[in-house]
Write a protein that binds this DNA or RNA. Structure first.
Length: 318
DNA sequence: CGGGTTTGACCAGCGC
DNA sequence: GCGCTGGTCAAACCCG
């Protein structure tokens, strides 16, 4: 059994996608750290999208900007409370932090009362100051995923705070915010107008906490050592992998998870994910709605752990 | 009752 | 300046 395994970076405005093949024999998972110059360029801040995506013409890594993970060894648990660190986003964001930096802690979500006060202050400031500092955005990572479920589980808890109709798309865009009080990560979810079976998920920022379902260092079939590596790889890929794992669980049986992307990028490499014995309760709700007759679904059998993606010689924990 | 979703309103940025 | 669009807010609503 084979399934296509891609991570796609997607420019929502230009409808343009860059992509790498997670399961390529040439490009191991370790490359996601940015240690491989031929591969790392595909991991970078999408802001500003217009500028960066112009160079995201797969496969032309030489023209791509540097990866977001300048610190390959940073542990997720030790991520700074201010994820939009200079090493990552300063070069790409020009919107000053009217709400972030002015709050001292960039990612801190104040209490509702404080928030309202801050809103009032910001409103007053926006009225009093003609040119307030521009807002500084977090780094963003976009994934294009084939799914019939709009909001894929990724191990974190999200609260929907908005939905907007998108220009040139019949599908609305949903806005989610991490429910953790100390985490300001956001994500946007929308369906691709070109291919309604594709869901574009854009993460903004980095989680400052462990996933609620990734407790005790082991979950979704991942070994603790694997989790450690994922922490090192950064939250983006962790999120993506979790998303895949959990998405597969929504099928309740091991089945194909097709991340194929349109165009000439299609290849046929394989990875796989097993059924998980954990966290099913989390997935019950969405699994109710998932159409298991998806054309892309088929069954597979193997481990589905990090080792299924990362070549053995590229792992350190074995 | 607490937490999450919906949805209209509002605001800021940007292009013309 | 104006209109368009994306992003966010917040009241109302829903649900367990």
């Amino acid at each position: 059994m084979e399934r296509k395994e891609f991570v796609t970076f997607y420019d929502q405005q230009q409808q343009q996608a860059g992509m790498f093949d997670m399961s390529s024999s040439d490009l191991g998972f370790m490359d996601l750290l940015g240690t491989n110059q031929d591969f790392s360029p595909y991991l970078y801040d999408m802001i500003p999208q217009q500028q960066q995506l112009s160079s995201l013409q797969y496969p032309s890594p030489a023209a791509a900007p540097p990866p977001p993970f300048s610190e390959a060894t940073s542990d997720l648990t030790n991520l700074p409370a201010t994820p939009n660190s200079d090493s990552i986003s300063s070069a790409t964001s020009n919107e000053a932090a009217t709400d972030n930096t002015e709050h001292g802690n960039n990612n801190k979500i104040s209490s509702k009362q404080d928030k309202e006060e801050d809103d009032q202050k910001s409103k007053q400031q926006s009225k009093s100051k003609k040119k307030p500092l521009k807002k500084q955005r977090e780094q963003r990572y976009a994934f294009k995923t084939q799914s019939e479920v709009d909001h894929l589980e990724d191990g974190y808890r999200w609260r929907k705070y908005g939905q907007k109709a998108v220009k040139n798309s019949p599908f609305p865009r949903s806005y989610y915010r991490c429910t953790s009080a100390t985490c300001g990560v956001k994500k946007r979810v929308e369906r691709c107008s070109d291919d309604p079976s594709m869901v574009v998920t854009t993460y903004e920022g980095q989680h400052t906490h462990h996933s609620p379902v990734m407790t005790r260092g082991s979950s979704i079939g991942m070994s603790q050592s694997s989790m450690s590596h994922f922490n090192n790889y950064g939250s983006m890929m962790q999120n993506h992998y979790q998303q895949q794992q959990l998405h597969l669980q929504q099928h309740q049986q091991p089945c194909m998870y097709n991340l194929q992307t349109p165009g000439n990028y299609s290849t046929t490499t394989t990875t796989s994910v097993p059924p998980s014995t954990a966290h099913h309760s989390l997935l019950h709700d969405q699994s109710r709605h998932y159409n298991t007759s998806s054309a892309s679904a088929s069954y597979l059998r193997d481990h589905g752990l990090l080792q299924d993606i990362v070549q053995s010689d590229m792992r350190k924990d074995e």
